[in-house]
């Protein structure tokens, strides 16, 4: 089966950012995204999702490499300083490249 390589961009951050982050990601060229609730611990402390201001989300986008880099750069410039956030990019194989 033929498969194509695309980038999987994963952002784990505060749930408070969800609305603006989704707008940013779509504006920067993502065709879609997936959000899941998340909890964990980082250097800004444990975020246990016990209630609203303590909740985290994981936002995943499958896209081509330029889009992934554009989103990563934008998010780094706008949110890294003040928000609990990590971001990583990995290679994934997809079957329908035109979707991403």
């Amino acid at each position: 089966m033929e498969s194509f390589t695309r980038k999987l961009l994963t952002i784990v951050t505060e749930a408070a950012l969800e609305t603006v982050l989704v707008q940013d990601v779509e504006k920067l060229g993502a065709h879609g995204y997936t959000i899941t609730d998340a909890r964990g611990k980082g250097h800004r402390g444990a975020r246990s999702a016990g209630w609203e201001t303590d909740a985290n989300i994981r936002l995943e986008v499958v896209c081509d490499e330029p889009t992934a880099e554009r989103i990563a750069a934008y998010v780094r410039d706008h949110y890294y300083e003040n928000y609990a956030m990590i971001l990583f990019i990995s290679d994934v194989s997809v079957l329908r490249p035109e979707k991403f």
Binding site: A16, T53, Y79, E81, N82
Partner: peptide, 17 residues
Amino acid sequence: YIAVPAAMRMSVPDANP
């Protein structure tokens, strides 16, 4: 502890929640 923290997080992000 609900409405204001959410609004401050978005509008005054450099404040430590």
